[in-house]
Amino acid sequence: MKGKINIILTGVGGQGVITAANILGKAALKEKVNVFVSEVHGMAQRGGSVNCSVRMGNVSGPLVSSGTADIIISTEPIEALRYIQYSNKNTKIITDINPVIPYTVSVGMEKYPEIKEVFNELNKYGELYKIDAVKISKDAGALITKNIVMLGALAATDVLPFKPENLLETILENIPTKFKEMNKKAFEGGLKAIKKY
């Protein structure tokens, strides 16, 4: 492939963001596309903010730079906004609509913004796609497949240099047999949700 592809994956620790980024990396490798996958998580653990860069093509630097993301995939609405510096007006932003409330909010120390305001704000920064990835993943069989729903959604856009089938193939190669069907459904659910837009 020519040029560069810059993908940001964000979310909350425990939602499978890093796993999704690694699968993307493996899919690129299989398609003979140069790739770097980078985790920026510091001391984050379950519940912390997670952000991964996946860069493909003619790239050397491992991290996406400001304003250059082709797409931001977020498993949580405010986490998309937290990393909005990576967007430009052409950036696609796909986010799950379901907030994960941080404990700083649940114990009353901080406030979670109005969800409508969050979506309005995201809309200003790029081309916003909202999906109910919690519902799609539960319909597929389990909430744990939410990261795969998001990969399905990503595959539905024109960002990746390979076909959705190629990504799905890599996903299924990296998942134990008994969970394959569930993840296939999750992937297709995410794909459909974006195609409908």
Partner: peptide, 12 residues
């Protein structure tokens, strides 16, 4: 660019 909306933190 930075959003003007204040986001709650997710400290470890």
């Amino acid at each position: 660019k930075e959003s003007k909306i204040t986001l709650p933190s997710r400290p470890p």
